[in-house]
Design a protein around this nucleic acid. Structure first.
Lengths: 215, 215
DNA sequence: CCCATTCAGTACCGTACGGTACGGTTCGCA
DNA sequence: TGCGAACCGTACCGTACGGTACTGAATGGG
């Protein structure tokens, strides 16, 4: 997973030492393996071979550590939108299917599920700071990619919609349905991943039936 | 909210004293107000004017209390499927819109959100027992209602689909999209509820475009 | 009138966590 | 070589929670 390169990349504009990145990586591993309960300051310090004092010096607070983890992970998952080459009906469909598969893969990822669980667990208390952060830095990214794709499709006369948000909402719902919630609730993600390809194609077909210009 | 009648109803076949129902109600209130952190045994005992010893005698364990809360709430939310009267295109559409609104209302409910957050937070650890319970006793209910509705539509020649689960997945996704996750993450649910009506109609229109027999 | 059962209220115990303080070590630098 | 900064490892503190034990007051049945 090229963690070294990814880490260095992530540290570029976030004021994070390489060492701190390694610590955050370890903290994410703990969170993925054992949930929020396993994410104790002592545990992170032990797993990352650093002192609790350093943790508090770097991140100020346990909540600061959680925020840093979300920001760190978000900065790693850069989504590159493929240059909008000349679109025709078939290439648009291919792009949409790729997007759908990517979306399902991301949502089913260990770290994504763990961070979403963490933010949801913290949502009641404290004004859902983590929830907003996750939404802003995670969702927005993939949302922008989809918006660009949809807009390109409309510009090329292949899609017809008035409200882009509405169209994106339909696309998202058709792709994800209730799978995300099921996985968040603990349904074994491993067994579902096999169906992602078929699911993505079905969702895109349905979406094109709704918003495609030529049936 | 007719809590007395609802409580008595819920106790019917679950071996719960009326007193225990009151305690569970109070526990749910605590959970809704303050999240899992606020759901301490001492807190429940204080709020419900009972002793911790009684809590442990009745529910055995903190996890037992959580399970009892989920079961209790599920037993209160009985979904009645309206007798499938003679369906035509317009009545099917009306039924679907009502279903969509009900679904959105349920998912946006305080208690539903709190219990889902609780189960999701517990999902990493302990084999996601609560998650399965929530899925089985909550989702299955509304899923059956939808399945009955779709099947009736097909029988009446108004809907066309091969795989009922696939059709239900599309319906669910079009209705809910990512609203549920946003609410679970702490987005203010109050402001969203205004849009439920329009959202439901749009989703049903899209669904009928996909699966209706007369375009 | 007596006894058993139930339960509220409280005190208690062990544990685990967040956060802080301190001693010892390494490393860069003058 | 000496100095200071960063930092690891650990010990420590206060608190809060889950769970248990005890006491005293009701209640009800013989």
């Amino acid at each position: 997973m090229q963690s070294v390169a990814a880490t260095r990349e992530a540290n570029a504009g976030s004021g994070l030492t390489e060492r701190q990145g390694v610590v955050l990586e370890e903290a994410l591993r703990l969170l993925v393996d054992g949930g929020e309960k396993a994410l104790t300051t002592a545990g992170v310090a032990r797993a990352a071979n650093c002192s609790k004092e350093s943790l508090y010096k770097w991140f100020g607070d346990r909540d600061g550590l959680l925020s840093a983890m979300i920001g760190f992970q978000a900065s790693k998952v850069r989504t590159q939108d493929p240059a909008a080459d000349a679109l025709n009906a078939e290439s648009l469909r291919r792009h949409l299917v790729v997007f759908a598969k990517d979306l399902l893969e991301v949502l089913a990822g260990d770290v994504s599920l763990a961070l979403n669980r963490l933010a949801i667990g913290q949502a009641s208390r404290e004004g859902s700071k983590l929830g907003h952060m996750l939404q802003e830095r995670g969702r927005r990214q993939i949302g922008r990619r989809a918006a660009a794709l949809l807009e390109a499709g409309r510009k090329a006369g292949l899609l017809a919609f008035d409200d882009a948000d509405e169209a994106y909402g339909a696309l998202y719902g058709l792709i994800v349905s209730d799978w995300h919630l099921k996985m968040l609730l603990g349904e074994e993600a491993g067994e579902m991943k096999k169906g992602f390809g078929r699911k993505a194609e079905q969702a895109v077909s349905a979406f094109l039936t709704l918003y495609g210009t030529k049936g």
